[in-house]
């Protein structure tokens, strides 16, 4: 009985043959759908923070500091869901097939895109990133004098202009 089952299992083994992938000298067992680490294209990113708000484990963070805001991606906390790529309005995030991410230092698992911040030309408050400003101008032409204002000053300015009855321009 036992011998019979050994013969049978041998049969199964012979039929299956060698299935081992000789990774790393052979290709890994990846399918075309695999979601690996994300890549943020610094030429496209606006720094709007949509990805930061959707990221479930907070692997993406946007921290303003002095004159810049850094969008940091910590792959060591990423859950590879790819939601950031879906919500990105600038299509700056792509999901790659990269999984060989091991590192001996935790700092090497972080990468960042640094955005210069623009101040309100009237009150001096930090308002948005340079890249987002450019993108907004491109998509909806706003009058030059309004673009560098923070929402509060813009409202104020527009209100004044309207009272003076000169439409959109106050000068």
């Amino acid at each position: 009985m036992v011998k019979l089952s050994i013969a049978k299992i041998l049969q199964i083994a012979l039929k299956a043959g060698r299935v081992t992938r000789k990774y790393p000298s052979e290709q890994p067992l990846l399918t075309p759908e695999f979601r690996g680490a994300i890549r943020i294209d610094p030429t496209k990113c606006w720094g709007c923070g949509a990805c930061v708000r959707v990221c479930p484990p907070n692997a993406l963070t946007l921290t303003p500091k002095d004159k810049v805001a850094t969008l940091e991606y910590f792959v060591g906390r990423c859950i590879f869901c790819g939601m950031c790529a879906e919500v990105c309005p600038a299509n700056a995030i792509t999901v790659t097939k990269e999984f060989e991410l091991s590192s001996t230092s935790i700092e090497d698992l972080k990468s960042g895109v640094v955005h210069r911040l623009v101040r309100c030309s009237s009150c001096g408050e930090l308002i948005w990133t340079e890249a987002e400003l450019r993108a907004t101008v491109k998509s909806s032409p706003i009058s030059e004098e309004y673009i560098t204002l923070c929402p509060k000053c813009r409202k104020l300015k527009f209100g004044k202009a309207a009272m003076l009855g000169r439409g959109g321009s106050s000068e």
Binding site: P42, C45, V75, S103, L109, V114
Partner: peptide, 9 residues
């Protein structure tokens, strides 16, 4: 392969 990169937009 992983390396810390910080680039300006």
């Amino acid at each position: 392969k992983s390396k810390r990169v910080e680039v300006y937009a």
